[in-house]
Design a protein around this nucleic acid. Structure first.
Lengths: 217, 217
DNA sequence: TTCATAATTTAGATAAGTCTAAATTTTTTA
DNA sequence: TAAAAAATTTAGACTTATCTAAATTATGAA
């Protein structure tokens, strides 16, 4: 088994690998709120266990076994988030920190039964896909609202920013998962957008918000 | 907040305090599978935090704040055990190790909502009482079967030994919580007992088993 | 293409929790 | 009640994961 710290490093490397082939020491340090020197120490340890590919000064990538562990942690995180929202009625902006602890509960059978109990959900409360018990999942093709043009429309299906301030803002504007929206106007000056909800209500959102709100076309 | 190790020490001291006023270093070491010297180190630390009363060579007891923490961990342990059995359909002999990890999830609101989700259960799957959100609970008066006399009867309401071997044995004999039994005969030679189930079936159990099976009269 | 700057690694230290072996205190027993 | 035995504590060491400060390597701008 792996320690809690090791699991957090693997998860962080996995997430950072979405954006780049190789992940840098500083990126990991920033994402885990530690110092680069601490990261280097841990990278050596993970490389010894062949969970990552690491050459000094060159950044790292996950090996197949490292990736498997990372995906399993992410599966647990997302299933527990789903549980917290669907069964315990938490709001989508409240569940991250709790799931951060729960993702380290080790039992495989527990998580498989939880999955079954909730009827095999496909997405967590923020629209992220939930890997199945074999680690397989399809990262659906989502587009940021900021990439749309006037008259385009789609269904809100995810967020890039999981901060509670952003999630609470969306909640207040009723910009929640599953809602259909269409683009009414794009303000040339600051790239803010006016969007229309199904109930015809119009909402004005910043470029920043549009960039972090994801749509299925 | 307290570390995982601290929480486990407090819980152990709490349980051991059921049998004796003051708990000894060796008792704690045995219950946590560590060495007495490690226990001494931790006792100093817990005493510094005023979670225990400790004088060298004299054993320890919990302070009110230490007891509060211990009871909270036990509440979490028992609620998660209930969840695992009632919602995820685990057997009563499978849940201890999982709950041992889950009891350290810190969120108070999480555990209170879990309690509500399950409709405020009073007992865990082994018959142990579940403290409420204020830490209050009534340790019901249970009698070991071994203390009964011929013709006495009662309802199986708890176990002293939580080992999976004992629990599996009980399950196989259908000696599960809620079943009514009565004493038919006590064998003088080895103090084993012949008991009768509601369906008239007779079962022969050892003194050892009778000692670990608890009855509400 | 060289040199300043940024990124990364190494060296050495620290804190938590554990251990073994030795020293001390308490308890038991003769 | 004094010695032997048992229980407990102390001393010193180890591991994991972290840190700061210094050294090294890589990168990018002139």
């Amino acid at each position: 088994m792996n320690t809690l710290a090791e699991e957090n490093y693997l998860k962080s490397i996995y997430h950072l690998s979405m954006d780049a082939e190789n992940v840098s020491t500083n990126q990991i340090a920033a994402s885990l709120n530690t110092k680069a020197s601490s990261v280097t120490d841990m990278l050596k340890k993970l490389a010894d266990k062949t969970l990552i590919n690491y050459t000094r000064y060159q950044g790292v990538s996950l090996t197949p076994s490292g990736e498997k562990i990372a995906i399993n942690i992410i599966r647990k995180h997302r299933l527990w988030e789903y549980f917290l929202v669907e069964k315990l009625k938490f709001k989508w902006d409240q569940v991250h920190d709790m799931a951060e602890e729960m993702e380290h509960i080790s039992s495989v059978e527990l998580i498989d039964r939880l999955d079954e109990f909730m009827d095999y959900p496909q997405h967590d409360p923020h629209g992220e896909p939930i890997p199945d018990c074999n680690g397989r999942f399809t990262a659906s093709e989502l587009t940021p609202v900021s990439a749309l043009s006037v008259n385009d429309s789609g269904t809100i299906s995810g967020v890039r920013d999981h901060s509670s301030s952003f999630l609470q803002y969306l909640e207040k504007q009723q910009l929640t998962l599953g809602k259909r929206i269409s683009i009414i106007e794009i303000v040339e000056f600051d790239h803010s957008m006016i969007i229309q909800m199904e109930n015809k209500k119009e909402i004005h959102i910043s470029r920043e918000a549009a960039n972090n709100l994801l749509i299925a076309l």
